[in-house]
Simulated assay, not measured.
Amino acid sequence: MARAHRTLTALVLLGIMVVLLASLGRWQLRRADERRAVLAAIESGRRQPPLLLTAATPSDDLRPWRPVSVQGRWRADMTVRLDNRNQNGRPGYWIATPLMLEEGSNTAVLVLRGWLPRTLPGEPPEAAPALPDGVRTVSGELVRRVPRLFELWNPGGASDDVLPTAWPSRDGPPTVQNLDLDAYARATGLHLLPAVMEQHAPSGDGLVREWPQPSVDYNQNLGYAMQWFAFAGIAGIAFVVVAVRAARGRGP
């Protein structure tokens, strides 16, 4: 009786392992498909001809990863610092500033201008480089939104990021963890294009413009999937061995 109970327990556990390990393999295959899709979107966007952004640019043309250029005037008074953006292991900020697309228009595109290192604790933040007056031409690449960081201290809840109600802020450019386009538009009163531009062309202002890229190494996921399926196969073989031995009356 005890032997039969042990055999049944072993078969149940091995069956659970087969199902669990196989499901992990399928999950890795889905992750590989997701990364393939991201890679395809990046390659497709970068194959598009460069786009000149204007206030009348249709939303359908604002494809992520598409190269773009834009002419306009900077609104330096509406600059925002994005905190906890590391560059090669160094802590720092991204600097985001809207660029007005037409004279007398309220339409703008939010530009991620570059990365600025954080100062030592107790020291005031380093000021963002001054922006030139007049109409400027800026080139870069589109992304759908400002890349977000997961807020460990506030998972799933309302964001602690607060934008000023009056611009320019008396305390200088506000510093936030994440920047939502809709919230930024409401705070500034600007009409923003539904995309964000990562500036690429150097301008000699000292900002670093090495933007992070999504992970697209789907081969890594395929390798993990094969490992999980191999473990599932081993558990399946063990299940068959135990079952055969039990059928022959020898037990595990």
Rank of each mutant, 00 (worst) to 15 (best):
L116W: 10
E103Y: 01
V12T: 10
Q199P: 01
I234N: 00
S139L: 02
W65V: 01
R85S: 09
D33L: 04
L99N: 05
Q227W: 05
G204C: 11
D180M: 05
V244W: 14
G206D: 10
G104T: 09
E123F: 08
P132T: 12
V216F: 06
V240G: 02
L82C: 08
R31A: 11
N219T: 14
V208G: 01
W167E: 03
I95R: 06
H191T: 15
T7F: 00
V19D: 01
G156V: 05
S203W: 04
L53G: 05
A4H: 13
D180T: 02
G104V: 06
R73I: 08
G134T: 06
Q213G: 01
G134L: 11
S215K: 06
H200T: 14
V216L: 05
N88E: 15
V109P: 02
D160N: 13
L29N: 10
I16G: 14
R26M: 11
G189Q: 11
N178L: 10
A166K: 11
P164D: 09
A243P: 00
L62V: 04
F231E: 06
E151H: 13
E126F: 05
V18A: 10
R81A: 09
V196T: 13
F239S: 07
V196A: 08
P194N: 12
G114E: 07
A225K: 05
E198G: 00
A195N: 08
W228T: 12
R113N: 13
A232T: 06
A166G: 03
T54A: 13
I237H: 02
L152P: 00
F229T: 07
Q227D: 03
L152T: 12
V38E: 12
A243Y: 08
A22E: 05
M1W: 07
A183R: 14
L181V: 05
G122Q: 11
E123N: 04
T188R: 08
V208D: 08
A232M: 10
M78Q: 15
Q220P: 00
L82G: 04
Q220T: 15
L39F: 02
L52Q: 13
R6V: 12
D171C: 01
V38T: 15
A10N: 07
G134D: 11
F150I: 13
L24N: 08
R118C: 00
F150K: 03
P147M: 10
A183F: 02
A247D: 01
G204N: 07
W228E: 11
A128E: 14
E198D: 07
A22N: 03
L13Q: 01
I234Y: 02
E151K: 09
A247E: 00
A225Y: 04
M100Q: 15
L142K: 05
A247M: 15
D161P: 04
L142D: 10
L53R: 05
R46I: 01
V146C: 03
L8N: 01
G25S: 09
R26I: 07
V146Y: 06
A232C: 09
A56T: 12
I95N: 04
V19A: 15
R209Y: 04
Y93A: 02
V242W: 07
S44Y: 03
D160K: 13
V19G: 05
R250C: 00
L14P: 02
A128M: 10
G172R: 09
Q28K: 09
A201H: 07
P174I: 06
A195V: 14
R63H: 11
M17Y: 04
V240H: 02
A32P: 08
A40N: 12
G156I: 10
E151N: 14
P164I: 07
Y184Q: 06
R250V: 13
S59Y: 00
R85C: 04
T119P: 00
L53E: 06
